[in-house]
């Protein structure tokens, strides 16, 4: 229970940090989705239930603070977490190049799903905006992902509530 409370507080602070500081750093023109990088990290390094809770809570907080389609990130983050979990069982997910490539694909997949849901729910076609809005964000997130993986690994005891498992397959 204590773990859940501390974890929720940590995740809420991360989302607040993400929506205020990163926005200010890039003068509101771009942003780094640190929360998504954490979801991918959880997929590679955390137990299924804890990782699911983390990604669900992150998605929910993001929906509350910055989302526009209700429940969208609450759905997308756990989905991307599961994909990362399944991938990490088949490949060695520790190399920086792999992390960068996988993050790039995850951000793009997330944006494609956003386009899909926008069309499904609001009938809004966002596909014309793919290159202008989505690509820089995917590139930025993928370039910074190894740095954030490094930072998250320093918090791994907090994230896992105990000493974590090593990578799933070597």
């Amino acid at each position: 229970m204590t773990y859940l409370i501390f974890m929720s507080a940590f995740l809420l602070m991360l989302i607040v940090f993400q929506t205020t500081l990163t926005e200010a750093l890039f003068f509101g023109k771009a942003g780094v989705e640190i929360s998504l990088i954490l979801v991918i990290y959880a997929g590679f390094h955390m137990e299924v239930m804890k990782g699911f809770f983390l990604s669900f809570a992150l998605g929910f907080f993001l929906d509350c603070i910055g989302g526009s389609i209700p429940g969208l990130f609450t759905f997308l983050y756990p989905l991307l977490f599961f994909i990362a979990t399944l991938i990490s069982q088949r490949v060695y997910p520790e190399r920086a190049l792999f992390i960068m490539g996988f993050t790039f694909l995850c951000v793009l997949s997330e944006q494609i799903l956003i386009i899909f849901f926008s069309r499904l729910i609001y009938g809004t076609d966002l596909s014309y905006d793919t290159v202008r809005a989505f690509l820089p964000q995917a590139i930025l997130a993928s370039l910074l992902s190894p740095v954030f993986f490094n930072i998250f690994s320093r918090f791994r005891v907090l994230l896992n509530g105990k000493y974590p498992r090593s990578v799933k397959r070597t």
Binding site: T20, E23, A30, I65, G66
Partner: peptide, 13 residues
């Protein structure tokens, strides 16, 4: 008190 420009959905608190 807050802005979100992370995705195409831009919001403000």
């Amino acid at each position: 008190i807050g802005r979100s420009q992370l995705s195409v959905f831009q919001t403000m608190l």
